[in-house]
Design a protein around this nucleic acid. Structure first.
Lengths: 218, 218
DNA sequence: GTCTATAAGGAGATAGAC
DNA sequence: GTCTATCTCCTTATAGAC
C-alpha cells in the first residue's frame, strides 16, 4: 500500500514545513521547501476550506512563507490541485492493477477491490477526500472527474459480472448496487481520521456490511 | 411530502424565471421575480459550479436580469444559501416528526426514516445536494452542518437501539453501521436525476439493500 | 424594477531588490 | 529563496438615473 511520504497531511502545520535535501553526511544543514511538502500543506487547506475558497495567501501563510516565495516553488493553485488529484487517482487505479483484482471469480475480485479501496482511502485520506469533492470547473477538475468515473465504471461492470455469473443475488439492478457500494465506501472520507478508535478493521467491516447488510435482520 | 412549488430546480433556465403575482382575473399581466424563484435559480447554479465558485454575476445572468436588479430582490449570496439549506433541512427534519418515525420498534422506525429520506432526497434533490456539500466557511454553513449532524445523530441512536433490542444483528459497531447507512443514502444525490429510468422504486430498493446487503451472496 | 456606472476590496500572479 | 510592492482582473455590493 502507498504510504504518505510527506507525513500526516491532515493537520495544517503551525510551523513552516520543510524537507531536507541531503547532499551527504554533515551537509544536511539547509532545510528547503519542495513541491511535495507544499502539496501536502495545500491539500490540508483545500480540504478545510474548499478549493475555491482557499486563496494563495492562505496557502503561503499555512506554509509559513510569503505568497511570492510560495510562487517560487509552484506555478499556481491548479498545479497543486493536479498533483494532489494525481496522487489520489494513482492510489485508486493501482488497486485495479493488482493480481487479485484481475484474476479469479468476479465476486472475489470485487471484494478485494472494496477492501483495498478502503485501505487506500484511509492511507491517502486527504488526497482522496479532495478528489471526491472535485466539481469540474477547470480542465484539471474535469480530467479528475473523468478518471474517477472510469474507476467507478470498472467496479460497476464487475458488479454486473458477479450478478450475471450468479455469485451475487440480484435483488436490484446491478448499476444501483454499484452506485450504493461506491457511495458507502467513499463516504468513509467524511468521518474517518487516522487512529480513530473502532476503525482498526475497517476494510473487513465494510466488506462484511456490503455482503451481509448494513442493517441485517436478527 | 413537500413538492417543489417553484418547478424543476435542476435545470438552469435559459429565459428569466418569473412567477405571477395574481391580483384577480384579467389582471395577471405583470410577471415579477420573487425571492423564491431566485433561490431556485441560485441553487441550480450553486450545484453546477459550487457555491464559492458562483458569483452574483453568474446568478443574475442565469435569472436573466442585471446584477443590481438581482440585488433588488435578495440581500446577498448568503441569504440565498441559507434559504436553500433551510428548505433541505425542513424536508429532512420533517421526516423525524412523522408518526411512523416516532412510534414502534426501532428497526421499523429506522427503515421508515430511510425510505422517507430517499423520497425527500429525490423530491428536494437540488436543495439536499447543496446541503450535503456545505463545508463550514460561514455562520450559515456552520449552522447547516450542525443541524445535519443532529439529524445523523438521531438516526445513529436509532441504529444503536435496533441493535441493542436485538432486531438487527450486530455485525459491526452501531456507529459504523449508521455512518455507512447515511453514506449510502446520501450518495444518491450524486447520480439521481428526476425521471431516471430504473429508479422508480428507489426507496424500496435502498431499504432492501441496506437490510439484505448490497452484494448478497447467492 | 430595471439599468449603467462605480466604489472598495480580494484574488492570482509577477517584478525586482536583497 | 525570500521579501515588499504592484499589476490586473474579478468579486460583492451600492448609487442614482429612468
Amino acid at each position: 500500500m502507498t504510504a504518505a511520504p510527506d507525513g500526516p497531511a491532515d493537520r495544517a502545520p503551525s510551523r513552516p514545513v520543510r524537507t531536507r535535501r541531503g547532499r551527504g553526511p554533515g551537509d544536511a544543514r539547509r532545510p528547503v521547501y519542495d513541491a511535495g511538502s507544499l502539496v501536502t500543506v495545500a491539500v490540508a487547506e483545500f480540504n478545510t476550506r474548499g478549493y475555491d475558497a482557499t486563496s494563495m495567501e492562505d496557502l503561503s501563510r499555512a506554509a509559513g512563507i510569503s505568497k511570492s516565495s510560495f510562487y517560487n516553488h509552484v506555478s499556481g493553485k491548479e498545479e497543486l490541485l493536479r498533483a494532489a488529484l494525481q496522487r489520489a487517482l494513482d492510489g485508486l487505479f493501482g488497486i485495479l492493477e493488482e493480481r487479485a483484482a484481475q484474476n479469479g471469480p468476479p465476486l472475489e475480485r470485487l471484494l478485494h477491490i472494496v477492501r483495498r479501496q478502503v485501505e487506500v482511502l484511509t492511507s491517502e485520506l486527504p488526497y482522496v477526500t479532495l478528489l471526491l469533492r472535485v466539481r469540474g470547473n477547470t480542465d484539471t477538475e474535469r480530467w479528475a472527474l473523468a478518471r474517477r468515473r472510469a474507476f467507478d465504471a470498472t467496479v460497476a461492470s464487475l458488479v454486473a459480472d458477479a450478478i450475471s455469473e450468479g455469485q451475487v443475488r440480484a435483488t436490484v439492478q446491478p448499476w444501483l448496487a454499484a452506485r450504493l457500494l461506491s457511495g458507502a465506501v467513499n463516504s468513509i472520507t467524511e468521518w474517518y481520521r487516522p487512529g480513530r478508535a473502532g476503525a482498526e478493521n475497517l476494510p473487513d467491516d465494510v466488506v462484511r456490511m456490503v455482503s451481509g447488510g448494513i442493517l441485517p435482520s436478527a
